[in-house]
Computed example of a mutant assay.
Amino acid sequence: MLATEPWEYSLNIPNDVRAVTVSRRTLRLILTVHGLIRLVDVAELLATELISNAVRHTKGPAALRVRWSPPGTLWIGAWDADPEPPGPLVPRRQTADLEDGRGLALVRACADVWGWQPLSRRGSRGKYVWCECALEASECIPG
């Protein structure tokens, strides 16, 4: 059954590369329980990129926030302890096997809308990078 009421979850995560897997699996469970299995693939990709950046490029804790607003918008956001703007949208060097630098380009390609803002959380400065995807636009074919 499709979620008809709004809901929101937050997951505080340590600065640990395993947090990406925990976040992805938690998000999959949340979406499945709320009947939003159609959003799982693109939401996992988006959350993985946001949390990976938070864990890889900062030294402090991070948090994943997931929010649903009927009739069909999913917001995914990641807070981290670095107040600097997110990295470049496209890789500095365009090569087929370059792994670094593609995360935000994937977010831009797969999300309907994305953005960032400086943020204070529990007395710490940082930033919040977010994106949204609509239920009817739940496929992502980067290109």
Rank of each mutant, 00 (worst) to 15 (best):
P91T: 09
M1K: 15
A43Q: 00
G101Q: 00
D16C: 13
L119V: 10
P71N: 15
R122G: 03
P6D: 01
Q117E: 03
Q117R: 08
R67C: 11
W7P: 12
I37C: 11
L119W: 14
E132G: 03
A43W: 03
E132A: 13
T48W: 13
H57I: 15
P142R: 08
D100E: 07
C110H: 09
A47W: 00
K59I: 04
C140F: 06
A96Q: 03
V90D: 05
V42P: 06
D82M: 02
D100C: 06
A105L: 08
W130V: 06
M1Q: 10
H34I: 04
T58Q: 10
G101W: 04
L31A: 00
T73R: 15
A109Y: 11
R65T: 06
L104I: 13
P118Q: 05
L89E: 07
I30C: 04
T32C: 15
V40Q: 07
D41Y: 08
L74C: 09
V40A: 07
D41H: 07
L46F: 07
A81M: 08
L106C: 07
G123Y: 00
D16V: 13
A3C: 04
S138D: 05
K59N: 14
E99S: 09
N15P: 13
W68F: 10
E99A: 10
D97S: 08
S69K: 02
I37G: 06
E8R: 10
A19W: 12
P61E: 09
S124R: 13
